[in-house]
Design a binder for these strands. Structure first.
Lengths: 145, 145
DNA sequence: TTAATAAAGGATAAAAAACTCTTTTTATTT
DNA sequence: AAATAAAAAGAGTTTTTTATCCTTTATTAA
Protein backbone atom coordinates (compact mmCIF):
# COMPACT_ATOMS: atom_id res chain seq x y z
CA UNK A 1 0.00 0.00 0.00
CA UNK A 2 1.02 3.56 -0.54
CA UNK A 3 1.32 6.40 1.89
CA UNK A 4 -2.41 7.13 1.73
CA UNK A 5 -5.49 4.93 1.71
CA UNK A 6 -7.07 4.21 -1.65
CA UNK A 7 -10.03 6.30 -0.60
CA UNK A 8 -7.69 9.20 -0.01
CA UNK A 9 -5.95 8.74 -3.34
CA UNK A 10 -9.28 8.86 -5.15
CA UNK A 11 -10.24 11.93 -3.13
CA UNK A 12 -7.09 13.81 -4.03
CA UNK A 13 -7.33 12.98 -7.70
CA UNK A 14 -11.01 13.87 -7.80
CA UNK A 15 -10.36 17.16 -6.11
CA UNK A 16 -7.70 18.12 -8.62
CA UNK A 17 -10.01 17.08 -11.42
CA UNK A 18 -12.91 19.13 -10.12
CA UNK A 19 -10.69 22.12 -9.50
CA UNK A 20 -9.48 21.95 -13.06
CA UNK A 21 -13.04 21.93 -14.33
CA UNK A 22 -14.09 24.67 -11.97
CA UNK A 23 -11.39 26.88 -13.41
CA UNK A 24 -12.91 26.51 -16.86
CA UNK A 25 -16.23 27.59 -15.43
CA UNK A 26 -18.44 24.61 -14.78
CA UNK A 27 -19.59 21.81 -12.58
CA UNK A 28 -18.77 18.16 -13.11
CA UNK A 29 -20.87 15.09 -12.45
CA UNK A 30 -19.66 11.95 -10.78
CA UNK A 31 -19.70 9.93 -13.95
CA UNK A 32 -17.27 12.25 -15.64
CA UNK A 33 -15.02 12.62 -12.63
CA UNK A 34 -14.76 8.90 -12.03
CA UNK A 35 -13.98 8.32 -15.68
CA UNK A 36 -11.48 11.13 -15.66
CA UNK A 37 -9.52 9.84 -12.71
CA UNK A 38 -10.12 6.12 -13.20
CA UNK A 39 -12.05 5.30 -10.04
CA UNK A 40 -15.17 3.26 -9.30
CA UNK A 41 -18.13 5.58 -9.74
CA UNK A 42 -20.31 4.60 -6.81
CA UNK A 43 -17.43 4.53 -4.43
CA UNK A 44 -16.21 7.95 -5.47
CA UNK A 45 -19.76 9.23 -5.03
CA UNK A 46 -19.58 8.24 -1.38
CA UNK A 47 -16.24 9.91 -0.93
CA UNK A 48 -17.36 13.19 -2.49
CA UNK A 49 -20.60 13.04 -0.58
CA UNK A 50 -18.54 13.02 2.57
CA UNK A 51 -16.27 15.86 1.46
CA UNK A 52 -19.36 17.81 0.51
CA UNK A 53 -20.95 17.31 3.92
CA UNK A 54 -17.74 18.67 5.42
CA UNK A 55 -17.92 21.73 3.21
CA UNK A 56 -14.66 20.94 1.45
CA UNK A 57 -16.22 20.58 -1.98
CA UNK A 58 -19.38 22.26 -3.19
CA UNK A 59 -22.19 20.43 -4.95
CA UNK A 60 -25.47 21.16 -6.71
CA UNK A 61 -28.28 18.75 -7.44
CA UNK A 62 -30.45 18.59 -10.52
CA UNK A 63 -29.76 19.23 -14.18
CA UNK A 64 -26.50 21.07 -14.75
CA UNK A 65 -25.61 20.14 -11.22
CA UNK A 66 -22.43 18.50 -10.13
CA UNK A 67 -19.38 19.19 -8.02
CA UNK A 68 -17.35 22.38 -8.02
CA UNK A 69 -15.27 24.66 -5.83
CA UNK A 70 -16.03 28.16 -4.78
CA UNK A 71 -13.21 30.65 -4.85
CA UNK A 72 -12.06 30.30 -1.29
CA UNK A 73 -12.22 26.50 -1.47
CA UNK A 74 -9.84 26.47 -4.42
CA UNK A 75 -7.17 27.89 -2.13
CA UNK A 76 -7.51 25.11 0.40
CA UNK A 77 -4.42 23.07 1.03
CA UNK A 78 -4.37 19.45 -0.03
CA UNK A 79 -3.71 18.56 3.59
CA UNK A 80 -7.36 19.38 4.35
CA UNK A 81 -8.48 16.57 2.09
CA UNK A 82 -5.97 14.10 3.47
CA UNK A 83 -6.89 14.94 7.02
CA UNK A 84 -10.62 14.66 6.31
CA UNK A 85 -10.22 11.23 4.73
CA UNK A 86 -7.27 9.56 6.44
CA UNK A 87 -7.03 11.55 9.64
CA UNK A 88 -3.79 12.95 10.94
CA UNK A 89 -1.95 9.64 11.15
CA UNK A 90 0.34 10.50 8.26
CA UNK A 91 1.45 13.72 9.91
CA UNK A 92 1.89 12.76 13.50
CA UNK A 93 2.10 9.01 14.12
CA UNK A 94 5.17 6.96 14.99
CA UNK A 95 6.73 5.10 12.08
CA UNK A 96 6.91 1.91 14.09
CA UNK A 97 3.35 2.29 15.34
CA UNK A 98 4.24 3.01 18.95
CA UNK A 99 1.51 4.84 20.76
CA UNK A 100 3.73 6.58 23.23
CA UNK A 101 6.69 7.27 21.00
CA UNK A 102 7.81 10.84 21.66
CA UNK A 103 10.80 13.06 22.25
CA UNK A 104 11.04 11.74 25.80
CA UNK A 105 10.52 8.08 24.94
CA UNK A 106 11.50 7.82 21.28
CA UNK A 107 11.55 4.75 19.09
CA UNK A 108 14.82 3.98 17.36
CA UNK A 109 13.78 5.85 14.24
CA UNK A 110 11.89 8.66 15.87
CA UNK A 111 13.89 11.58 14.54
CA UNK A 112 14.27 10.26 11.05
CA UNK A 113 10.54 9.62 10.75
CA UNK A 114 9.81 13.02 12.18
CA UNK A 115 11.74 14.58 9.33
CA UNK A 116 9.92 12.57 6.73
CA UNK A 117 6.52 13.28 8.19
CA UNK A 118 7.24 16.96 8.38
CA UNK A 119 8.20 16.92 4.76
CA UNK A 120 4.94 15.23 3.81
CA UNK A 121 3.04 17.69 5.94
CA UNK A 122 4.80 20.68 4.40
CA UNK A 123 4.16 19.41 0.91
CA UNK A 124 0.46 18.86 1.52
CA UNK A 125 0.06 22.15 3.32
CA UNK A 126 1.74 24.25 0.71
CA UNK A 127 -0.02 22.54 -2.19
CA UNK A 128 -3.40 24.06 -2.95
CA UNK A 129 -6.23 22.29 -4.67
CA UNK A 130 -6.35 24.69 -7.58
CA UNK A 131 -2.64 24.79 -8.11
CA UNK A 132 -2.27 22.39 -11.00
CA UNK A 133 -4.92 23.63 -13.32
CA UNK A 134 -2.52 25.05 -15.86
CA UNK A 135 -0.34 21.98 -15.92
CA UNK A 136 -3.41 19.83 -16.35
CA UNK A 137 -4.60 22.08 -19.14
CA UNK A 138 -1.33 21.77 -20.95
CA UNK A 139 -1.26 18.03 -20.44
CA UNK A 140 1.99 18.32 -18.52
CA UNK A 141 0.59 16.25 -15.71
CA UNK A 142 -2.02 13.52 -15.65
CA UNK A 143 -4.63 12.20 -13.26
CA UNK A 144 -5.38 9.06 -15.16
CA UNK A 145 -3.89 6.42 -17.44
CA UNK B 1 -3.02 4.54 8.95
CA UNK B 2 0.67 5.22 9.05
CA UNK B 3 3.25 4.78 6.38
CA UNK B 4 3.43 1.03 6.93
CA UNK B 5 0.83 -1.65 7.56
CA UNK B 6 0.30 -2.76 11.14
CA UNK B 7 1.80 -6.11 10.24
CA UNK B 8 4.91 -4.31 9.06
CA UNK B 9 5.11 -2.17 12.19
CA UNK B 10 4.98 -5.29 14.36
CA UNK B 11 7.60 -6.91 12.15
CA UNK B 12 10.02 -4.01 12.46
CA UNK B 13 9.63 -3.75 16.20
CA UNK B 14 9.99 -7.49 16.65
CA UNK B 15 13.11 -7.54 14.55
CA UNK B 16 14.75 -4.80 16.60
CA UNK B 17 13.74 -6.63 19.74
CA UNK B 18 15.17 -9.93 18.60
CA UNK B 19 18.36 -8.28 17.40
CA UNK B 20 18.80 -6.69 20.78
CA UNK B 21 18.44 -10.04 22.47
CA UNK B 22 20.68 -11.75 19.98
CA UNK B 23 23.42 -9.29 20.82
CA UNK B 24 23.30 -10.36 24.45
CA UNK B 25 23.69 -13.94 23.35
CA UNK B 26 20.38 -15.70 23.27
CA UNK B 27 17.18 -16.63 21.56
CA UNK B 28 13.78 -15.19 22.39
CA UNK B 29 10.40 -16.85 22.34
CA UNK B 30 7.26 -15.35 20.86
CA UNK B 31 5.68 -14.76 24.22
CA UNK B 32 8.51 -12.57 25.34
CA UNK B 33 8.80 -10.74 22.05
CA UNK B 34 5.11 -9.97 21.82
CA UNK B 35 5.10 -8.73 25.40
CA UNK B 36 8.19 -6.70 24.75
CA UNK B 37 6.83 -4.90 21.75
CA UNK B 38 3.15 -4.87 22.68
CA UNK B 39 1.68 -6.97 19.91
CA UNK B 40 -0.83 -9.84 19.78
CA UNK B 41 1.11 -13.03 20.33
CA UNK B 42 -0.50 -15.35 17.79
CA UNK B 43 -0.47 -12.71 15.11
CA UNK B 44 3.18 -11.94 15.61
CA UNK B 45 3.88 -15.66 15.48
CA UNK B 46 2.48 -15.69 11.96
CA UNK B 47 4.54 -12.71 10.93
CA UNK B 48 7.79 -14.16 12.25
CA UNK B 49 6.93 -17.52 10.78
CA UNK B 50 6.82 -15.81 7.42
CA UNK B 51 10.06 -13.91 7.95
CA UNK B 52 11.66 -17.16 9.07
CA UNK B 53 10.51 -18.98 5.94
CA UNK B 54 12.12 -16.21 3.92
CA UNK B 55 15.36 -16.64 5.81
CA UNK B 56 15.28 -13.13 7.22
CA UNK B 57 15.13 -14.26 10.82
CA UNK B 58 16.45 -17.51 12.23
CA UNK B 59 14.47 -19.79 14.52
CA UNK B 60 14.91 -22.92 16.57
CA UNK B 61 12.26 -25.19 18.00
CA UNK B 62 12.22 -26.92 21.34
CA UNK B 63 13.51 -25.96 24.77
CA UNK B 64 15.85 -22.99 24.63
CA UNK B 65 14.56 -22.39 21.17
CA UNK B 66 13.22 -19.14 19.85
CA UNK B 67 14.06 -16.50 17.32
CA UNK B 68 17.49 -15.00 16.73
CA UNK B 69 19.74 -13.57 14.07
CA UNK B 70 22.94 -14.98 12.74
CA UNK B 71 25.80 -12.60 12.22
CA UNK B 72 25.16 -11.78 8.59
CA UNK B 73 21.42 -11.30 9.19
CA UNK B 74 22.13 -8.67 11.82
CA UNK B 75 23.59 -6.51 9.10
CA UNK B 76 20.50 -6.67 6.93
CA UNK B 77 18.86 -3.38 6.16
CA UNK B 78 15.43 -2.66 7.59
CA UNK B 79 14.22 -2.25 4.03
CA UNK B 80 14.41 -6.02 3.62
CA UNK B 81 11.79 -6.46 6.30
CA UNK B 82 9.54 -3.75 4.91
CA UNK B 83 9.79 -5.15 1.42
CA UNK B 84 9.07 -8.70 2.60
CA UNK B 85 5.96 -7.61 4.47
CA UNK B 86 4.52 -4.63 2.61
CA UNK B 87 6.12 -5.05 -0.80
CA UNK B 88 7.81 -2.21 -2.61
CA UNK B 89 4.79 0.10 -2.69
CA UNK B 90 6.33 2.51 -0.20
CA UNK B 91 9.45 2.92 -2.29
CA UNK B 92 8.12 3.12 -5.80
CA UNK B 93 4.39 3.82 -6.01
CA UNK B 94 2.70 7.06 -7.04
CA UNK B 95 1.45 9.22 -4.16
CA UNK B 96 -1.89 9.65 -5.86
CA UNK B 97 -2.18 5.95 -6.68
CA UNK B 98 -1.78 6.32 -10.42
CA UNK B 99 -0.59 3.15 -12.05
CA UNK B 100 1.15 4.79 -14.94
CA UNK B 101 2.50 7.84 -13.20
CA UNK B 102 6.08 8.31 -14.36
CA UNK B 103 8.62 10.83 -15.55
CA UNK B 104 6.94 10.88 -18.93
CA UNK B 105 3.39 11.05 -17.66
CA UNK B 106 3.70 12.46 -14.14
CA UNK B 107 0.96 13.21 -11.68
CA UNK B 108 0.88 16.75 -10.28
CA UNK B 109 2.94 15.77 -7.27
CA UNK B 110 5.25 13.29 -8.94
CA UNK B 111 8.56 14.96 -8.19
CA UNK B 112 7.72 15.90 -4.65
CA UNK B 113 6.62 12.39 -3.82
CA UNK B 114 9.67 10.98 -5.48
CA UNK B 115 11.83 12.96 -3.08
CA UNK B 116 9.92 11.75 -0.08
CA UNK B 117 9.95 8.14 -1.18
CA UNK B 118 13.64 8.26 -1.85
CA UNK B 119 14.18 9.59 1.62
CA UNK B 120 12.17 6.75 3.12
CA UNK B 121 14.06 4.27 0.99
CA UNK B 122 17.43 5.71 1.98
CA UNK B 123 16.52 5.64 5.63
CA UNK B 124 15.38 2.02 5.53
CA UNK B 125 18.33 0.93 3.45
CA UNK B 126 20.96 2.51 5.60
CA UNK B 127 19.38 1.36 8.86
CA UNK B 128 20.48 -2.12 9.87
CA UNK B 129 18.54 -4.44 12.10
CA UNK B 130 21.24 -4.62 14.72
CA UNK B 131 21.93 -0.93 14.77
CA UNK B 132 20.01 0.10 17.82
CA UNK B 133 21.14 -2.45 20.33
CA UNK B 134 23.19 -0.06 22.38
CA UNK B 135 20.51 2.58 22.51
CA UNK B 136 18.02 -0.06 23.54
CA UNK B 137 20.39 -1.30 26.19
CA UNK B 138 20.79 2.15 27.62
CA UNK B 139 17.06 2.74 27.48
CA UNK B 140 17.58 5.70 25.19
CA UNK B 141 14.99 4.35 22.81
CA UNK B 142 11.94 2.18 23.35
CA UNK B 143 9.96 -0.42 21.45
CA UNK B 144 7.01 -0.48 23.74
CA UNK B 145 4.87 1.62 26.08
C1' DT C 1 12.23 -42.79 25.82
C1' DT C 2 9.37 -39.72 27.75
C1' DA C 3 8.05 -35.09 29.07
C1' DA C 4 8.45 -30.44 28.24
C1' DT C 5 9.14 -26.66 25.20
C1' DA C 6 8.74 -23.89 21.27
C1' DA C 7 7.94 -22.93 16.47
C1' DA C 8 5.14 -24.37 12.19
C1' DG C 9 0.90 -24.96 10.08
C1' DG C 10 -4.03 -24.81 9.20
C1' DA C 11 -8.53 -23.23 9.92
C1' DT C 12 -11.49 -19.75 11.46
C1' DA C 13 -13.24 -15.21 13.14
C1' DA C 14 -13.67 -10.29 13.60
C1' DA C 15 -12.93 -5.70 11.97
C1' DA C 16 -11.89 -2.43 8.59
C1' DA C 17 -11.60 -0.90 3.89
C1' DA C 18 -13.27 -0.96 -0.60
C1' DC C 19 -17.00 -1.14 -3.38
C1' DT C 20 -22.33 -1.69 -5.19
C1' DC C 21 -27.15 -1.04 -5.59
C1' DT C 22 -31.54 1.15 -4.74
C1' DT C 23 -34.36 4.79 -3.20
C1' DT C 24 -35.06 9.58 -1.97
C1' DT C 25 -34.49 14.43 -2.35
C1' DT C 26 -33.66 18.59 -4.81
C1' DA C 27 -33.30 21.40 -8.69
C1' DT C 28 -34.00 22.47 -13.62
C1' DT C 29 -36.10 22.58 -17.88
C1' DT C 30 -39.95 22.10 -20.89
C1' DA D 1 -47.11 20.82 -13.47
C1' DA D 2 -44.49 16.98 -15.43
C1' DA D 3 -40.40 15.03 -16.83
C1' DT D 4 -35.73 14.76 -16.10
C1' DA D 5 -31.16 15.15 -14.22
C1' DA D 6 -28.09 14.83 -10.59
C1' DA D 7 -26.47 14.41 -5.88
C1' DA D 8 -27.75 12.55 -1.08
C1' DA D 9 -28.79 8.88 1.67
C1' DG D 10 -29.34 4.28 3.17
C1' DA D 11 -28.52 -0.51 3.16
C1' DG D 12 -26.03 -3.84 1.73
C1' DT D 13 -21.81 -7.00 -0.23
C1' DT D 14 -17.05 -8.24 -1.05
C1' DT D 15 -12.29 -8.18 -0.10
C1' DT D 16 -8.38 -7.39 2.72
C1' DT D 17 -6.28 -6.89 7.02
C1' DT D 18 -5.85 -8.07 11.55
C1' DA D 19 -6.27 -11.46 14.93
C1' DT D 20 -7.32 -16.04 17.42
C1' DC D 21 -7.26 -20.96 18.32
C1' DC D 22 -5.93 -25.52 17.90
C1' DT D 23 -3.09 -29.28 16.15
C1' DT D 24 1.33 -30.96 14.49
C1' DT D 25 6.24 -31.27 14.26
C1' DA D 26 10.88 -30.66 15.85
C1' DT D 27 14.20 -30.28 19.63
C1' DT D 28 16.04 -30.68 24.11
C1' DA D 29 16.78 -32.46 28.50
C1' DA D 30 15.82 -35.40 32.24
Amino acid sequence: MGIFSKTCEYAMRAVFFIAHRTASGGRVGIKEISKGIGSPEAFLAKILQDLSRRGIVQSAKGPNGGFYFDKSSLKRPLSDIVEAVDGDGVFVGCGLGLEYCSEISPCPLHNQFKDIRNQIKDLLQKTSIGEFNEELNLGLTALRK
